[in-house]
Write a protein that binds this DNA or RNA. Structure first.
Lengths: 215, 215
DNA sequence: ACAAAAGTGTTGACTTTACACCCATGA
DNA sequence: TCATGGGTGTAAAGTCAACACTTTTGT
């Protein structure tokens, strides 16, 4: 998934064969005997759709209903992969990015997989630093605000976004600023995330462990 | 998993054959063609170890490293299942409950699966009503306190536990009370959970949607 | 000077922990 | 009446959303 043109989008591939011809499917394929599933996902995205810049990949769920696809029983292990908004992989002609809120007719149970991914992403934006995987290496707070707004599906205040992320030590000014647009306005400071990999930043909303008595 | 004797325990089965003879393994088995994985798990627990009272079952993760078990490649889909502390299934002689903080030598990658399950449970105790699946149908706050403390691995105050769960509308007094022990003391009120299935009760720790303007 | 965009200060609402205190019972 | 365990009141700390206000730029 990626935030592009102000909305959260997912890369889908139009099936050319039965079953479910012309319906849109998630990229993926068969697992080789010598690789684990995450490795397989990365390989297929690279080989088939030229997506190499996955800033974050995580397991979503296994879909194992006996009738989820016609024909022989097939178990799917779904993953969520995030691409930073500044990259634009050259995808093949039969694939396209689709806004999550305006999906075409999907193949098999892929729509429910996309829904699950969207839900996971929304939740994690709140209690982890997962935003780093959607954002470019450096950004203004306005840009980050748009990314978060697109992914969450509602408007976020850049003021409060900055405060929340700063309090958690996730955000750091690079020192540089951007030029203002033609309309003028104060130049925006550039920020970047301090941590690369995903971390839980707000564990234990309640029922925290007892205070570690200082002294 | 279940809280028994004041600690969080997991049911393991001692392998009688190579590979990994005499090491302890999680219960499980092969997936049939006509069932989904959750159905399979419930079936195997029922048939093999007589565990029927699973108050909650959820997917944990897929383990797919090519060398996770010797021999032909085998992908495992791990689940977390919770048994309320008031039941004591009659398990076969080659299985035993083990405290998660004192595991025996486990087979294959099963220790990391247990760790993952423990982590998942701890997290969810904080932001969902998952405690209902560990507790008996009715309980005193002291009893619930012990269950939560065992599962979380640190001491929880029954005062605050009650308040947190009550505020969320998860807890309800049954009206009944218990007899005090021989040492005296005020009789404890009995409570039960208002909701049976798992629900997220504390979504959006931060970055909540804008207030739905009332009026 | 004015509009535009970015950033800061501040307030109020809400949670949650910690702890002092009160209540009901058996010996 | 005292010890014991259960339950309530309350204060202090922390977090967050909202919004007014200030800063910095281009025209």
């Amino acid at each position: 998934m990626q935030v592009r043109d102000g909305s959260l989008q997912v890369l889908l591939w139009e099936r050319a064969q039965e079953p479910d011809v012309h319906r849109w499917a998630l990229p993926g394929g068969m697992l080789r005997l010598d690789e684990d599933i995450e490795h397989s996902i990365r390989r297929q995205l690279k080989e088939k759709v030229d997506v190499r810049q996955l800033a974050h990949v995580e397991q979503l769920a296994v879909f194992s209903a006996p009738d989820r696809v016609p024909g022989p029983r097939l178990v799917a292990s779904a993953f969520l992969g995030l691409v930073p908004s500044d990259n634009d992989p050259e995808v093949p002609p039969d694939t396209r990015w689709h806004p999550v809120d305006d999906l075409p007719t999907t193949a098999f149970d892929h729509e429910s997989i996309v829904r699950r991914a969207q839900h996971r992403l929304r939740s994690k934006l709140s209690y982890t630093n997962i935003g780093f995987a959607l954002a470019p290496p450096a950004f203004t707070m306005s840009e980050l605000r748009e990314i978060y707004s697109a992914a969450l599906g509602y408007s976020v205040s850049s003021t409060n976004l900055q405060r929340v992320l700063s309090r958690r030590g996730l955000l750091e000014p690079t020192g540089e600023t951007t030029k203002p647009g033609r309309a003028g306005g104060r130049p925006a400071a550039l920020f970047h995330f301090t941590v690369r990999g995903m971390q839980v930043t707000d564990e234990f909303a309640v029922l925290r462990p007892p205070a570690a008595k200082t002294r």
